[in-house]
Design a binder for these strands. Structure first.
Length: 571
RNA sequence: GCGCUCGUAGCUCAGUUGGAUAGAGCAGCGGACUUCUAAUCCGCAGGUCGCAGGUUCGAGUCCUGCCGGGCGCGCCA
């Protein structure tokens, strides 16, 4: 598709007598609203301003000039009002995209743009001692998808789980536990138990200053390296991590590093010293240390409490410096919810003030807040419960299919149910633009009809069914001129759009662009499927369609893999 | 109070960076399985793009104001 656009841009610029350069034409090219209007359109408004003529007249003149030139890529040009509409020669479109997909296979959709560059991606980052609820799913699933997308674009992604394993809240858990430890319960249900300790203590702390002080004291001991505090902390951390890992395994996610907040414990003094050297540190009313940001109309960034303990911001500052010095990444992404927007704006600004020019490469990849998930109020929906329910729902549907003879009993495994259930949840999270707030809804999350994960997987499985049952190998090439029905052309265009979707998904840190592209592809495929047959359509046509259908399978597989959804062969 | 953000069909959302007649899915109604999986497809119905101004050849998209929701705002993370 890119080649087509470039060629077209060159020729339009040529025909316009170089009044506009090819790059500008390229950026103006768009898809016409209706297929009958052509495959690519060039709106003449910009040119109209430059030439001081009506856009319709320009379109007409350009069409006249371009019509004379015969091209192997375009069979027709026509002016329609202010638009110049182009029609692909279908054999060319088919040849171009299908051979690209065939040759690049699993790499189709990727590029080399990131060669030699590293991207640090901070994502998931749950709090130790708190349950993993569906609010954490967003960061996890978006971050993991971004890791794969950047890898496909040639970058070296480094996925970091910035665990919330430090801070005063942790002091609360330790204070509560030390009062009446129940070791058996801790071993058995580490998170549920920690949560109980936390919520109960938190309730007390809201009323009693003594409790708050007790928690702060435990945290100070921890920061100072007190052996008892450290041992207790280590235990809670290890046990919680085991539970998180169980979830990550189910989601098919692994991190390059678990470098939580605690990792920066010995790096914070250095960070603070740098802030002081830059002359930015000021004392607050009660002896707290902070950086004022009045000029930028932001509240100050607090880096040390009046009792000497550090804060979340201190750790994030140390983490940013550490990441830059260790990896020299082209970008550092923070896949963190939109409520923390101010925090990151402050952090980036402080780094800039310190003279760190690389701070401009820090990106807060923010996503909408999942409403109504409060651990403290107990309204959070636990992710594991949702995963279980999704798998159960899939299991039922699989049983129906077996009963109806659509699926062989041997394929009806637990892994299949799991893959479908999780596919539904991931797609649900990756189908809307990140920044929107979401309200968790069981029915919506577990729906398998329409634009859902299972729909994408089902389409993939249908194609695998065709390839399996045809009993013939997929040919290298075919008579591309046969792939000219409207349904087929739409399919070819949808395939050709995939690489641009991946590229944009990386540029905008927006995996939903890929999900969108896949839904469009599957929709046009299913229309094709319902109007044309592959098997038994006649020797050369069958070959051409096998190649076409196999390309759809390949692109679907590549896209699903980027999103973290398993492409299934039967379901 | 200040700041950020969102407001599009009954519900959940797209809308290609300001362009052609505002599109999908769900839910509703009506159709299509002796034929490559009906977790599919086709059709119908559903809209004052929150409201009011402004910018211009052209605004769902940009600017201002208002209304409504969400989030945040120095010792939590």
């Amino acid at each position: 598709m890119k080649k087509f656009k470039q060629e077209l841009a060159r020729r339009v610029a040529e025909a316009a007598g170089r009044q506009i350069d090819p790059a500008e034409v390229l950026s103006l090219l768009e898809a016409p609203p209706e297929p009958e209007m052509g495959d690519l359109a060039f709106p003449c408004f910009t040119l109209s301003k430059k030439l001081k003529q009506s856009p319709a007249k320009i379109a007409g003149e350009l069409a006249g000039k371009l019509k004379a030139e015969v091209s192997t890529s375009f069979k027709q040009v026509e002016a329609k009002g202010p638009y110049l509409n182009f029609f692909f020669a279908e054999a060319a479109l088919a040849r171009e995209t299908l051979t690209d997909i065939r040759h690049q296979a699993d790499r189709f959709g990727g590029s080399e743009e990131g060669q030699g560059q590293t991207v640090v991606i901070d994502y998931s980052s749950p709090n130790i001692a708190k349950p993993f609820h569906i609010g954490h799913l967003r960061s996890t699933v978006i971050g993991a998808a971004l890791c794969r997308i950047y890898a496909a674009l040639g970058y070296q992604p480094i996925g970091i789980n910035h665990l919330g394993d430090w801070g005063t809240q942790f002091g609360m858990v330790m204070a509560a536990y030390s009062e009446s430890p129940d070791e058996a319960e801790l071993e058995e249900h580490p998170i549920r138990y920690s949560l109980k300790l936390y919520t109960e203590f938190n309730r007390r702390a809201e009323a009693e200053e003594a409790a708050r002080e007790q928690a702060r004291q435990w945290f100070r001991r921890l920061e100072a390296g007190d052996p008892e505090a450290t041992a207790l902390w280590q235990k809670f951390r290890d046990l919680s991590l085991q539970e998180f890992q169980r979830i990550y395994t189910r989601l098919g996610i692994s991190f390059d590093h678990y470098m939580g907040e605690s990792f920066y414990n010995d790096k914070m003094e250095d960070a603070i010293t740098r802030v002081e050297k830059a002359g930015l540190m000021e004392k607050g009313e009660d002896g707290a240390e902070l950086v004022r940001l009045e000029e930028e109309k932001m509240p100050p960034l607090l880096l040390r409490k009046s009792d000497g303990a550090t804060l979340y911001a201190t750790r994030d500052l140390a983490a940013a410096i550490f990441r830059w010095e260790r990896y020299h990444p082209a970008r550092i992404l923070y896949v963190v919810g939109t409520p923390q927007e101010l925090h990151f704006r402050q952090l980036i600004r402080v780094l800039e003030k310190m003279g760190c020019d690389w701070a401009q490469n820090l990106v807060h990849v923010k996503f909408g807040h999942v409403q109504g998930m409060s651990t403290r109020r107990g309204t959070a929906v636990f992710l594991e419960d949702v995963l279980d329910e999704a798998a159960a729902r899939a299991r039922e549907k699989i049983a129906e299919n077996v009963k109806a003879g659509k699926l062989d009993p041997a394929s009806a495994t637990e892994e299949l149910a799991e893959a479908i259930g999780i596919g539904a949840l991931i797609a649900q999270d990756l189908k809307n633009r990140r920044e929107r707030d979401v309200v968790f809804d069981w029915d919506q999350a577990l729906n398998f009809d329409g634009e859902t994960g299972p729909y994408l997987q089902y389409t993939h499985a249908r194609i695998c069914g065709i390839l399996r049952k045809s009993g013939k190998p997929v040919p290298e090439k075919a008579d591309f001129g046969l792939l000219s029905e409207p349904e087929t052309r739409e399919l070819l265009k949808a395939l050709a759009r995939f690489p641009e979707a991946v590229e944009r998904a990386g540029q905008e840190n927006e995996p939903s662009l890929i999900t969108d592209c896949l839904f469009e592809l599957t929709k046009v495929f299913n229309v094709f499927y319902n109007t044309h047959r592959v098997i038994g359509s006649g020797r050369s046509l069958e070959e051409a369609r096998l190649l076409l259908v196999d390309s759809v399978r390949q692109v679907l597989k590549n896209g699903l893999t980027l999103l973290g959804i398993q492409p299934l062969e039967k379901m």
